[in-house]
Design a binder for these strands. Structure first.
Lengths: 145, 145
DNA sequence: TAAAACTGTAATAAAATATATTACAATATA
DNA sequence: TATATTGTAATATATTTTATTACAGTTTTA
């Protein structure tokens, strides 16, 4: 048994990696896939795959079995995994990039910019999530020959 | 006269910076703002502001005057600058992060994943752009006291 | 029961990217 | 002609991402 706290930071390739993993697991049906096998398909380091699997597990998308002949598998039907949920599981930052800047508080624009940017970002991200929520892993996976 | 080719890479804080700049210019009305002044409001390095101004200029949003007492100003009315256009002007990468990976071509999933990811990204980004196209710089700028 | 093949995670290193800084030529103004 | 400013290149620093190394904990199976 392990207890972990992962701390990624950005919106990088994580969505792509997670979706790749989930698609492989869906295609594998009952069969368990090892992180090494998955890493070989994505062509990234196996440790990154395990970290991503850890996150996907925490969100209830996959389950893993430890030990010899262990591996991972989908923990719920692919049609019940919406791409919006996958996005939200890897999302850390605001989509359009948060300015970690502390704008000049003496400037009337600088003083309020972060509030207004955040409002804009929320609306924008909501549109994106809505779009993704119209697609499930099953639909995505089905596109592959 | 200068001739430049800028080569940023990522979707970082550029959207926020550009919108901050544009808002300042809109508020300044006829007055020219120097890159040092703008940098002071955003609280970033003036050279970054000039690079961003260069990009905004290339896209026809702003114009600049060189020499003493020079500076920048909006090149077109704020209501005609859609936030989607600003987004597109700073956009470089795919929104959800392109995997620069070369997935395993021997894996049936790896072989096709980039095609399907790109299709998904296009649809997703289209939704985001549509949302942003409903807002103009004028509307954004108006929110400030 | 011990070797083997896994997972889980921490720690560290390397690579990539973003941001800041320095420098200076070109340009316009006063 | 001095000054303030833009435009841009080159370089340095900081931050973030990705890879690597290492190893303890789990299961399976010989």
């Amino acid at each position: 048994m392990y207890c972990n706290k992962n701390n990624y930071r950005m919106n990088n390739a994580r969505f792509a990696i997670s979706l790749h993993i989930l698609t492989l697991l869906d295609k594998a049906k009952e069969e368990l896939l090892s992180s090494d096998y998955i890493a070989g398909s994505i062509n990234i380091n196996p440790v990154l795959v395990r970290k991503e699997l850890s996150n996907l597990r925490n969100h209830g998308f996959v389950a893993s079995k430890e030990g010899k002949n262990g591996g991972s598998y989908l923990a719920k039907p692919a049609h019940s995994i919406l791409l919006s949920a996958v996005y939200l599981s890897v999302r850390q930052n605001n989509l359009l990039g948060t300015s970690k800047n502390t704008p000049n508080p003496h400037c009337p624009v600088g003083k309020q910019i972060n509030t207004h940017l955040n409002n804009l970002y929320e609306a924008t991200e909501a549109a994106l999530i809505k779009e993704l929520s119209g697609k499930s892993l099953a639909e995505f996976s089905m596109k592959f020959d």
